[in-house]
Simulated assay, not measured.
Amino acid sequence: MPDTTFASPLLERMARIRLLALDVDGVLSDGRLYFQSDGSETKAFHTLDGQGIKMLQSVGVRVALITGRDSPMVAERAMALGVAHLHQGITHKLPVLRRLSHELGLELEEVAYCGDDLPDLASIHHAGIGISVPNAPPYIGAHADWITERPGGHGAVREICDALLKARGDWEAMLARHLKDPE
């Protein structure tokens, strides 16, 4: 059953998404960076977001992470979630998004992109669906097709994944699969 909180034209566009590309800091994490005394960095990731990514991938929607920082923790998280398309240390994200779309045989209209700051702005603007989070500066959200209710690092990605699953018509089957008794 489609999510009725979105206008019909946006729902139609959501149903065609075949790649979800995400920024990391401020989207998959809350944007804060924690540095240890040895100089190492730590981040927190929400388990709801991870489950949403796995659910989306299970129905054939690819997921990519495109981030400005280079972090071993992000590589570990991507590997744990089975995210094959990880691009770190990227200053200009739109060229990477275009190249990845081309490699996967997709049009940008089939791509949803979620970001929260200036390096994400061109990708938000040019993707089939540009998404931002409420913790982003207002001038970023002004260019998005949709701003999630949940902030980055606190289930925003899960909100996106659930909405895409509903728009694609995969939601009821996903619930049914998880309602089954495994025994």
Rank of each mutant, 00 (worst) to 15 (best):
T91C: 01
T91K: 07
T91R: 05
H92E: 14
H92A: 12
K93S: 05
K93Q: 06
K93C: 09
L94F: 08
L94K: 07
P95H: 09
V96M: 11
V96P: 09
V96Q: 11
L97Y: 15
R98T: 07
R98E: 15
R98Y: 02
R99S: 14
L100E: 02
L100H: 06
L100M: 01
S101P: 07
S101M: 05
H102C: 08
H102S: 12
E103Q: 14
E103A: 13
L104E: 06
L104D: 05
L104H: 09
G105M: 13
G105A: 13
G105V: 13
L106M: 11
L106S: 12
L106I: 08
E107P: 04
E107C: 10
E107L: 10
L108R: 07
L108K: 06
E109I: 02
E109W: 00
E109H: 06
E110W: 08
E110R: 13
V111Y: 00
A112H: 05
A112D: 02
A112C: 04
Y113E: 06
Y113F: 15
Y113R: 10
C114F: 05
C114I: 11
C114A: 15
G115C: 13
G115A: 14
G115R: 13
G115Y: 13
D116F: 15
D116R: 13
D116Q: 15
D116N: 15
D117I: 10
P119K: 04
P119E: 13
D120A: 02
D120L: 00
D120V: 01
D120Q: 01
L121R: 04
L121T: 01
A122P: 01
S123I: 08
S123V: 08
H125M: 03
A127G: 00
A127V: 01
A127R: 03
G128C: 12
I129R: 11
I129C: 06
I129M: 12
G130T: 08
G130W: 11
G130V: 07
G130M: 10
I131S: 00
I131L: 14
I131N: 02
S132I: 06
S132K: 02
V133E: 01
P134V: 02
P134A: 03
P134H: 00
N135D: 04
N135C: 04
N135Y: 05
N135E: 05
A136P: 06
P137A: 14
P137T: 09
P137N: 04
P137M: 13
P138C: 04
P138H: 08
Y139R: 08
Y139N: 05
I140Q: 02
I140H: 01
